[in-house]
Amino acid sequence: EEDDHMEFCRVCKDGGELLCCDACPSSYHLHCLNPPLPEIPNGEWLCPRCTCP
């Protein structure tokens, strides 16, 4: 299965362990989110761009 998510964080543009949005190709480091997440959430996760009205 091919993964179309970005291979770098949308905020800092660095690679590493990234959290991928379930609705778009964006990826983020947990510490780059505002507010930062302490751990990878269970289940579906939507990035700030997808949850913003």
Rank of each mutant, 00 (worst) to 15 (best):
W45R: 03
C52H: 15
S27A: 13
L33Q: 03
D14E: 13
C32S: 00
H5K: 12
W45L: 03
D4L: 14
C32G: 00
S27Q: 09
P48G: 06
W45S: 03
I40R: 08
E2D: 02
E39K: 08
T51R: 10
R10M: 08
A23K: 14
E17D: 05
D4F: 15
D14S: 07
H31F: 15
T51N: 12
K13D: 11
N42C: 12
E44S: 12
F8E: 08
T51Q: 14
C20P: 15
E44Q: 13
P36H: 06
E39S: 14
M6I: 12
D22S: 12
G16C: 07
A23Y: 15
L46Y: 08
V11H: 12
G16Q: 02
E17C: 06
P38R: 02
L18R: 09
P53K: 04
C9T: 03
C47T: 03
Y28D: 04
D3K: 15
Y28L: 04
C50A: 02
V11M: 11
C20L: 11
L19S: 03
C50W: 03
E44V: 08
C52S: 14
P25T: 13
E1R: 03
C21K: 02
H31P: 04
D4Q: 13
Y28T: 03
M6D: 06
H29L: 03
L30P: 14
P41L: 11
P48C: 12
L46P: 03
C9Q: 01
C47V: 01
C50Q: 02
E1P: 01
T51M: 05
C52N: 15
C47W: 00
P36Y: 01
P25V: 12
I40Y: 09
L33W: 02
L46N: 15
G15D: 14
D4T: 15
C52T: 13
L19Q: 07
D22M: 13
P53R: 02
P48K: 04
E1T: 02
L37P: 08
C24P: 01
A23N: 08
A23S: 15
D14V: 07
N42D: 10
A23W: 10
C9G: 02
G43Y: 07
K13C: 12
K13H: 05
C47K: 01
G43V: 11
T51K: 13
E7I: 08
P53S: 07
P35T: 07
E1I: 15
L37Y: 08
M6Q: 06
E17T: 12
H31L: 05
P25D: 14
M6H: 05
G43N: 12
H29T: 00
L46G: 03
M6F: 13
D14C: 05
N34Q: 12
C50Y: 02
G16Y: 06
H31I: 10
L19H: 00
P41G: 13
W45P: 03
N34V: 09
C21S: 00
P48T: 11
L37V: 08
C47H: 06
G43K: 10
G15K: 15
I40W: 02
T51V: 09
C20F: 10
C24Q: 00
E7G: 09
L19P: 00
T51H: 06
L30C: 10
L18N: 00
W45E: 03
V11K: 14
C52E: 14
Y28A: 03
L37T: 11
P38V: 00
E2G: 08
C52L: 12
F8P: 05
P41A: 07
P36F: 09
E1W: 03
H31C: 04
W45Q: 03
C50G: 02
E2S: 09
D22I: 10
G16S: 11
E17Y: 05
L30T: 13
P48H: 12
C32E: 05
C24G: 01
E7H: 05
L46K: 13
C32V: 00
Y28F: 11
G15R: 14
P48E: 15
W45V: 02
C20R: 05
C21T: 00
C50M: 01
L33R: 02
C24N: 00
C12A: 00
D4R: 13
W45D: 01
E44G: 10
D4M: 15
A23C: 11
H29W: 00
G15W: 09
N42Y: 13
E39P: 14
D14M: 10
F8Q: 07
I40N: 13
A23T: 13
P25G: 13
V11C: 05
P41F: 09
S26F: 10
C12M: 00
L18C: 05
R10Y: 12
N34L: 11
N34F: 13
P53T: 09
